[in-house]
Nucleic acid binder design. Sequence first.
DNA 1: CTTTTTTGCTAAAACTTTTAATACCTACAC
DNA 2: GTGTAGGTATTAAAAGTTTTAGCAAAAAAG
Lengths: 339, 339
Amino acid sequence: MKKKILISDIAKDLGVSVTTVSFILNGKAKEKRISEGLTKRVLAHVQKVGYKPNELAKSLRTGKTKIIGLVIEDISNPFFANIARLIETRAYSKGYRIIYCSTDNQPDKTIELIQLFRDRHVDGYIITPSEGVDDTIQSLINSQLPLVLFDRYIPGLATNYVVSDNVRGAYDATAHLAQQGYRRIALVTLYSSQTQMQDRMNGYMRAIDSYKLQPYVKKVNMGDDEETTVRDFHAFLQDQQPDAIFFATNYLAITGLKALKHYQTPLPGVVSYDDHTLFKLFTPTITAVSQPIEAIADELINVLLNQLDGKIKEVKQIVLPSELIVRESSRGRISSTTS
Amino acid sequence: MKKKILISDIAKDLGVSVTTVSFILNGKAKEKRISEGLTKRVLAHVQKVGYKPNELAKSLRTGKTKIIGLVIEDISNPFFANIARLIETRAYSKGYRIIYCSTDNQPDKTIELIQLFRDRHVDGYIITPSEGVDDTIQSLINSQLPLVLFDRYIPGLATNYVVSDNVRGAYDATAHLAQQGYRRIALVTLYSSQTQMQDRMNGYMRAIDSYKLQPYVKKVNMGDDEETTVRDFHAFLQDQQPDAIFFATNYLAITGLKALKHYQTPLPGVVSYDDHTLFKLFTPTITAVSQPIEAIADELINVLLNQLDGKIKEVKQIVLPSELIVRESSRGRISSTTS
DNA sequence: CTTTTTTGCTAAAACTTTTAATACCTACAC
DNA sequence: GTGTAGGTATTAAAAGTTTTAGCAAAAAAG
């Protein structure tokens, strides 16, 4: 009963050609010198019968889908979820839609997902690359597809990216702990060769050097289940007895806090890379390095849109500053010695 | 240089017709009695040259996109993000992809998004309906499109849905507080006519009746910014002096906890509807009504897939039990009188 | 040796839109 | 009366696949 209306139906109804209708619908009436009277008549009729062009057929013909593929590490991580949310809003206002998938940071899944998006002919790609996807990314670049990486980049690959200043962020966090009087400042990070992790490590080490401290580093296996990590982390605490801990990601911080709570360990100084809505609710509130997520989302969309418009050819590599948000969890040492 | 390979190229290369190649690629070789030798030859060649069918053309012809549209209230809310994640994984394993958007619970945005998905010819819909979208949902049903609602449903509309037992969950939470010795138990909820909110209110009221207590209800405006809500909520505390609070959603709980912290109010008994990873890290840990998100995701995909397979015609309305997870935040009254 | 059935494959239509090329008309100049 | 220009709309091809209907040859049946 609810037969789908085609452009040919419109044309037949009004006794004009399909082409004419198409031109008018695509705003080329002026350019193609179609009379104003006809233009209005067609538009009115389209409105009346509620005709909507078949987007699939349109995409097939034009090669444009108005869809952006978002390949993200994990949508249930608040940092990524919030960025995704902002990207979505901005893309939406420009007439683009988002199709997303989570990679779990697994190379094969990432590669598969990117291939999938290619099959679907998405117009552009926003990607948090996992390790080992260099060739796949390179192939996107070779095919001249609009692309921007974020959160991390691939060294040696001349591609657009937007990241935060991880070295600086980690330096600030560590230096802050040092200034608060902590001496045995540990870094908890992942086994990972990704740039954001390397950079956070570098920033930490630089601060350790500046303040002439000893490094204490605990590396965690991403794939391990939480329980294992909790035990593993606890053993590290016992062994190295740090008086402050800098967690390289928010989920490491959360796991760490769970371990501290579970073993009822007296809380050392704590800073997390990446903020979390609830960190300001903890007792004590948790100091964090906060990435500028609005700015990141803005730049990502900007860079991508510029490519989609065919405007810009040069490679954009954007590094945005992070901000250290000092809360109670990193002020223990001072207050305990001064009060 | 990297000319896209077409099915016609494959056919030409091997000196067979396009039809034959298509049959083989779609697993109809047997059915169409194509010789095994040829089948193998074609498959081998396709493999060799790395031919991939154009999904758009395929979709245009078949009317199937293998995409599921997920219309969700807010992807940055952990409850929804986690469900989205699980749905994504399950859909992926069945060969379906997810395209999602957040509605912010705004009717016009919701309607627009659903229309968008229709334009894109998604194969099925998973939707958290906002208020005032009855007609839009009805029109999906009229068009016989695979559809399942979740988290809430639309009363009087015979459509598939998966929700948790909100009445029971709210009753249990409230009853638990009563059993712990709290007497002035408040409900903090939204101005909302959505079923999940109504049901939680009902559950609360039923428990209030069972235990012969007085109700104390604070309604909050969803659109307000957090600061306003915090002040508003604080005024309610001053005014009504509840000794325990049941928050009807996790973000209300978070806002409420912020208010309590900000005004340094002594913590009353607290229960939140919807759990949160970090609730077990709080001091005190927060009691919560936990929805069975795995089960919800499973059922959603099941119900949708059954429709997509054309198997089932009857309407499925599934209500899953929630679980009360008792933590420290709701045990104050007892322990303070007994210890 | 003819008719029927089976086997193995193909031509052409269908999906819906965009766009390059072109046709037709009118008016005007030469 | 022919050529030219400009305005208005159309024809037909193209995008890349799936699928319907059907054909020729070989095998089986009579």
